[in-house]
Computed example of a mutant assay.
Amino acid sequence: MRIAIAAGGTAGHINPALALAEELRDRGHEVTFFGRPSKLEGTLVPQAGFSLVDVEVTGFDRSRPWTALTSLYRVWAAKRDLERRFKQEGAPDAAIGFGAYVEVPLLGWCKENHVPHLIHEQNSVPGLANKMMAPAASRVCISVPAARSVFEREGDPDHVVLTGNPVRRSVIAGDRARGRAALGVPDDATLLLVFGGSLGARTLNEGMAALKGRLLSIDGLRVVQSTGKGGYDEAASALSLTDAEAARWDLRPYIDNMGDVLAAADLVLSRAGASSIAEIAALGVPSVLVPYPFATADHQTTNARYLTDAGAAVLFKDDEVKEPAFGDALVGLLEDSSRRAAMRAAAKGLGQDSAAAALADQVESSARG
C-alpha cells in the first residue's frame, strides 16, 4: 500500500513517525513523508531513506489573530498542490499525521477525498493540530492513557486506540554490553545515566553538582551525564572533576548512541518529554523523572505518571531537586538492585517496544477499510 505521513518541526514528532515508517517499509508498503525541507524533517527523513514532499505551511500566533489569515491561505494552497500531485501519481491508501501543523493540508485533503486517515498523539496533552483533525480521523492513536478523554466520542469506543509512542529501531536495538564497552564502564559497575533532552536541563545539572560527593562515595558507581550543548561549560565548572573523578563521571554535551547508552544504564535521571518516556519504557530502564515545569499544561508531569503509575519510575517536581529527599531517593535506588529490578520489569510490562507494530496495524486496518 501507499502510505502518506505528515510529521515535522521537532524530533518529538519526527522520530515516532520514522519508527512507524520503518515498520511499514518492512511490511512491504511504500511510505512518503510530507513536511518542510527547511525544517528538521528535511534532514532526518532523507537520512532514514524516505522521500519528503515539500508542504509550505505556517502556524499562527494566537496573540496575533490576524496571522490566521495567512495560515489559512497557505493551507488552502498546499491542499491545491496536493490535489495536483495525487491526480498525477495516485492518491495514498491511507495517511497519518503526527501533530505538527504540516499535517493539516494533507489530512484535510484526505477528508475531502474520502481517503482513510489517522492521527497519532505523542503527549498526554494533545496539540492544536491533532485536536483540529481528530473528528474526521478514522482512528486516533495515543501514546498514554491520559490523552484518551480529549479524543473520545460518544457511541464510537474504537475511535481512540492506545498504541504507545513508537521508538526507532536504532534505540530499541540498544545493547547493554555494546553500550558499556563504548562507554568504558565495567560489567559489574552501577551506571547512572542523566540527561535533560536535546537542550539539557539546568536543574538536573545543578542537582548533580550538589550531589557529586555523595554519589562518588557509592562504591562501583559510574555516571554518564549529558548536559545539553548550551549547558556543558557551566556544568563542567560546577562539577570541577579531578582526573580521578572524571574516570568515573563521563560528562558530555549530548549522546549520539542513545539506544546503547540507555541499555547500558541501571538507572536514568531525566526530564519527562514524550520521546524520553517512550525510549526509557521501551528499554525497560528504571527512572527518576523531573518534569519540565513550564511545559504546556504541565504535560510532562502527566507523561511521567504513565511510568510512575506502573511502578517503573519515581517522580520529583523541579523545585524538589534541591531538597534532601531527592538525593535520598536517588542514592537509595542506586544502592537497591532488587527495587530497580522490579521497576525494570514494570517498565517492560508496558509493551512500549511494540508501539511501532501496534500503530502500523492501525494504519493497515484503516487503509483496508
Rank of each mutant, 00 (worst) to 15 (best):
A4F: 13
N15Q: 14
A19G: 10
A21I: 03
E22C: 08
G28T: 13
F34L: 08
S38F: 10
G59F: 00
R62W: 04
R74S: 09
D81G: 13
D93V: 09
F98R: 13
V104G: 02
W109R: 04
C110L: 04
E112S: 15
H114V: 07
H117P: 07
L118I: 13
P126S: 02
G127H: 07
M132G: 05
P135F: 10
A147P: 07
R148D: 12
V150I: 08
V171A: 09
I172A: 04
A173I: 06
R180K: 12
P186G: 06
T190I: 11
T190W: 05
L193W: 01
A201F: 02
K212D: 10
G213A: 09
R214T: 14
L216V: 13
D219P: 03
G220N: 15
L221R: 08
V224T: 03
G228F: 02
G231T: 04
A235L: 05
A236P: 10
S240Q: 15
T242P: 05
T242C: 10
D243H: 11
D243V: 14
A246N: 12
W249V: 10
D250G: 04
L251P: 03
R252C: 11
R252W: 07
P253K: 03
L262C: 02
A263N: 13
G273Q: 05
A278E: 11
A278R: 05
A278Q: 01
P291T: 05
Y292H: 04
F294Y: 15
Q300Y: 06
T302D: 13
N303S: 03
A325W: 03
A329E: 15
A329Y: 09
L334D: 02
M343W: 10
S354D: 14
A355T: 13
V363C: 10
A367V: 04
G369P: 06
